[in-house]
Write a protein that binds this DNA or RNA. Sequence first.
DNA 1: TCTGGGGTCCTAGGACCC
DNA 2: TCTGGGGTCCTAGGACCC
Length: 392
Amino acid sequence: MVLSNNDGCIIARSDEAKALGFAMGDPYHLTQEKLTLHGVQVFSSNDALYGDMSRRVMETLRAFTPDVEIYSIDEAFLNLAGFERWGLTDYARLIRATVRRDTGIPVSIGIGPTKNLAKIANHLAKADPESGGVYKLAGAEVYEALARIEIREVWGVGPRWATWLEAQGIVTALDVKRADPKAIRRKMTVVGERWVHELNGRPCRPLELGAPPRQGITVSRSFGQTLTALDPIKEALVSFVGRAGEKLRRQGFMAGQDLVFVTTNRFSSTQPFYANSTSVRLQYHTDFTPDLLEAAAHLLETLCRPGFHYPTCGVMLLELSPVTRVQADLFDTRDRSREAWLMRALDSLNTVYGARTVRVGNHGGKRPTWAMRQAFRSPRYTTNWRELPVVR
DNA sequence: TCTGGGGTCCTAGGACCC
DNA sequence: TCTGGGGTCCTAGGACCC
């Protein structure tokens, strides 16, 4: 099984772990006895490795059609219109075998006329060992297949809507297909209406080629231990803002708004839950870390109430604007080009010599008090020279 | 009995995704 | 002692514009 950041929750399970009854989101610290009993292997999350392997898989997919939408770290939608003469199922098997050969990653592929139907087909491909990892949803089979799918398993329906739908007698995906779109819309808005249409083979979710412009960049972490004093929290925030600035520049944006949030432990029985955020509109759009930092540090001071214990804080950069489209300010007297050079130097050094070699801020080299727990991390095989796999 | 018609922007809250 | 982190979309209501 794989744990969330800070070794908090269970977020991924092998089939064997699922069979033993471990659930998505179970707190790790409450399951330890059972883990030991069954000899379950546990890994801390390893974003560097997963992100790099994801990139390799996506690149492999692009060789098969130009129309690839990267939907998440482990999912993509491919437009296979025009490939029918190859036989879509055969073509999908070729894609699957190639991804396996070139990256070592096993994937399953669902084929359907809409995204929602393709997701269901994929679900069936995973569930049915006979399918060989590929399932095409077509013809009269659709009815039988949809009748086997409970709405709780369907993409786009969370626990709230599922409970409501079940109360209406809508229990399977087939019930949804037959439901009145307008009636669904009254409860589930246009999102639900589109869902009904999609299950009927009428596409409402176009393929998103080219990433849509980002709305915001967030960096937040739970600390390895609960913090009370302002200084170590600020130290953590300095580091988060530094990371947020890197993301911002890498993606070619400047931010117009800086938001900081803190929360206390919402599961605590000994102290009240306190969560708050505050934001400030920056004088100029900027990607200059010291500016982002100054604003964030000031915001933090107004947020943290004394006496509370904080396990989490974070920063969000909002009102993103592409660097090339930022409006200059007539009364801005600072030399922005020198600041840009400084950030470029910082980012290059960190690229060449490793993340956080050069940092803005004043925290030392020692392992900080807020460092994330990651007790069982696998090696970063493909992104760190010191952790390369050894063949012999 | 009767008070226009066409918009935008912002925020909070609620739902969802992996 | 310990319960993740990163996102998106939609709606209603209130305020404003000419």
